[in-house]
Amino acid sequence: MLEIKNLQVKLEDEDKQILKGLDLKVEAGKVHAIMGPNGSGKSTLSYVLSGRDGYEVTEGSATLEGEDILELEPEERAAAGMFLAFQYPVEIPGVGNMTFLRTAVNAQRKARGEEELSASDFLKEVRAKAKTLKIDADMLKRPVNVGFSGGEKKRNEILQMAMLEPKLCILDETDSGLDVDAMKLVAEGVNALRDENRGFLVITHYQRLLDHIKPDVVHILANGRIVKTGGPELALEVENNGYAGILAEEA
């Protein structure tokens, strides 16, 4: 599904290399977790994949089902099936959450040559999905993420993911700022979306989230590279020994 080869990325504004030859393959139906210390390049990876400005790819490639995504605009990547759940979802005053969702769903359908969802079908679907995420009617009416609590923002990300039904979901530190109950709710939302045709890349600092979203593969990212790959037990090792232990081992 997602294949990243020797990806090297630097910041556009300063001459600083963040990713230094990253290789990664996420198969359909699998959940891959990326863990790593602060500054290892985790968020950069998620932003480069989703097409945010400010990063320059100096080497390497990233393909989604064989298509080179690095050449695409952010909206084209979304239409191709990529979704990033933001670490810090953006507040957009003046744009209603519902309007935003409908615009996004229909824009993607249009880009793929599919028919737009009718207002009533859309409403039915969004209500049903919002309910399982405990998102009430008021949250749907309010401007996008404005005045939402940390938990509400993350649930709103998962709602968008559920509505857009992407092929590849990237979750960037989705656990940050969540209490235990909110984390469970978000994890349930993600787990409900797991199926054999969809791949997940879960970026996190802590093993905690991975108790709820069980990964198939765990990677350790350090200094712009994947330094170790293993099964779920690798996450536990991080929890017990910290990154320092693992990095020393690899050095």
């Binding site: 945010r52 952010p74 990547r77 979304a78 935003f100 615009t103 996004a104 824009a107 996008v144």
Partner: peptide, 8 residues
Amino acid sequence: FYLRSRGV
């Protein structure tokens, strides 16, 4: 960027 990342 947020809107575009959702396909708009």
